[in-house]
């Protein structure tokens, strides 16, 4: 009876996700396989085609590169900022948290658009550099990997700060007191106590930022354009501009595989590296 009640309550959500997400996505993955006996690679021929193309390999590699840079930079900037925020007096801390939540709740389009304005030929960054005399004429910054990386770091730093403030606040204060009463300075305490304890949280933050930047569309579309195609923009172009659905399905499947592999490997790693786990 109780078993039945539990199932009945969970059924609508289960059915919705099974029918409208699992089956359609499985269908997409299903259509990526070729017919056996065709081509040198049999059923994985469409994947072989993907990797045989220089252009597609570059798109995939660029996506890894951009997502990697964005993750590392956000991690470093987020950790330092979160360290300071977590150590602020209560009132300052809550103001700083609110200031980080605000950009997070503002849409990606709005936040990417800001960089479109800043990095344009007549944009403020160029005007400023010319004013300081560092450059003579405007630099082309839009539609470069750098522009995509800067805008994505901008988008993901607030997320990282919020995740890491939570992580750092959960580190028991007495451990730090113990470490300083045993003679460790703030730097030694940070590297020998705080950082090892924060590793699982850092991994969570890194996974969030890596997966989100690997699969993002709006920022690469606005700041990278067709010149700096990434997996997200390439999937959209294949499906909606070139109507090459089998090709788009392969892009989608590779994207999904990268994300699932990252999440699985990293959560295992986070568990293993957790010094608090017994």
């Amino acid at each position: 009876m109780k078993r039945l009640a539990g199932w009945m309550l969970a059924t609508p959500a289960t059915l919705a996700i099974a029918l409208l997400l699992v089956i359609p996505v499985a269908g997409t993955i299903g259509m990526t396989f070729g017919t056996p006996g065709q081509g040198d690679w049999g059923i994985v021929q469409p994947y072989a085609d993907f990797f045989a193309s220089n252009f597609r390999r570059r798109v995939l590699w660029r996506t890894f590169e951009v997502a990697g840079y964005v993750t590392v930079i956000s991690l470093a900037a987020g950790l330092v900022t979160a360290y300071v925020v977590a150590r602020c007096p209560a009132w300052t801390k809550s103001v700083l948290v609110v200031l980080a939540v605000f950009p997070l709740l503002t849409g990606v389009i709005v936040r990417s658009f800001a960089w479109l304005v800043l990095l344009g030929r007549e944009g403020m960054v160029n005007q400023f550099l010319i004013w300081t005399g560092l450059i003579d004429g405007p630099l082309t910054m839009l539609y470069t990997p750098g522009a995509v990386i800067v805008a994505m770091v901008y988008i993901f730093v607030p997320l990282m700060v919020l995740v890491l403030v939570g992580v750092l606040e959960n580190i028991p204060e007495d451990l730090l007191q113990a470490s300083s009463s045993l003679g460790a300075g703030p730097v030694a305490s940070f590297f020998q106590v705080t950082l090892p304890l924060a590793v699982p949280g850092l991994i969570v933050g890194a996974v969030l930022v890596f997966t989100a930047s690997f699969t993002s569309y709006a920022t690469p579309a606005l700041l990278g354009g067709t010149r700096q195609m990434m997996m997200g923009t390439f999937l959209h172009q294949s499906a909606m501009v070139r109507f090459d659905w089998p090709g788009a399905a392969v892009v989608a499947a590779i994207m999904l595989a990268v994300i699932l592999a990252t999440v699985l490997v990293m959560t295992r790693l986070a568990k293993r590296l957790n010094p608090m786990a017994t």
Partner: peptide, 24 residues
């Protein structure tokens, strides 16, 4: 079941969008 319920944020949104376009 709880894994099933997080799938919409685990599976990339672009993949969900494309799959819904194809099937739905």
């Amino acid at each position: 079941l709880s894994t099933l319920f997080v799938l919409p944020i685990l599976v990339p949104e672009m993949v969900i969008g494309f799959s819904l376009l194809r099937s739905v």
